[in-house]
Amino acid sequence: MVQPPAVMPIPQAPARPVVQLTPGSVATVVVGGTAVVLVVGVVLVSLLLAVAITAASVAVVAVAARAILNDSRKGR
């Protein structure tokens, strides 16, 4: 007697994990995002302030150098 071929079960793809958003996790994400925005903002403002201070220093040095060069050309 001939036996029918065995039926192979079709493998199922593993189910994707479900992300559950609880009020606590939403609050954590909001607080974390706010902290990141504040830190990036502070860093950018600090860099802008450093550039402004450097520009002012260079301007003062340029004015002083110009005054010294003008005085030396006039023979004082």
Rank of each mutant, 00 (worst) to 15 (best):
L69R: 14
P14K: 10
D71K: 09
G33V: 00
V18I: 14
V7N: 03
Q3S: 12
S25G: 00
R16N: 06
P11L: 08
V43F: 12
A6N: 02
A55L: 14
S46Q: 10
K74T: 08
V37W: 06
V7H: 02
V7D: 01
L49F: 08
G33D: 08
G24M: 01
P4R: 12
A13N: 05
I53M: 13
S57Y: 02
P5M: 07
V63D: 07
A56R: 14
K74G: 09
V58L: 15
G32E: 14
V2N: 11
A62W: 03
I10M: 10
V26N: 00
V58S: 06
V61S: 08
V42P: 00
A35V: 08
I68Q: 11
V36W: 00
V43K: 01
V39E: 06
Q20S: 05
V18R: 11
V51G: 01
A55M: 09
A6K: 11
T54S: 10
P4S: 08
V30E: 12
I68S: 13
A65L: 14
P11F: 03
V2R: 11
V61E: 06
T54G: 05
V40T: 14
V31T: 15
A35H: 03
I68G: 03
P5I: 06
R73V: 10
V18G: 02
V61M: 10
V31R: 13
S57W: 04
K74A: 13
L38M: 15
V7K: 09
V30H: 05
G32L: 07
G24S: 08
G41W: 05
S72M: 10
V51I: 14
V60E: 07
V37P: 00
L48Q: 08
V2D: 11
V36G: 01
P14I: 03
V29P: 01
I68M: 11
R66Y: 07
L48G: 08
R73Y: 04
A56N: 12
T28M: 12
R73E: 10
S72H: 04
A6R: 11
P5V: 11
A50Y: 02
L44C: 05
V30K: 10
V60W: 00
V61L: 15
V26I: 15
R76E: 04
V60D: 07
P23L: 01
P9D: 07
V45K: 09
Q3G: 07
R66S: 11
A27F: 02
V29L: 15
R76V: 08
V39W: 12
G75C: 07
I10Y: 03
V60R: 12
V26K: 05
I53Q: 10
V42I: 15
Q20W: 00
V2K: 12
P23R: 07
T28F: 08
V40D: 04
G32T: 11
T22F: 06
V58G: 00
R16S: 10
I10Q: 12
V36Y: 03
T34Y: 06
A67D: 02
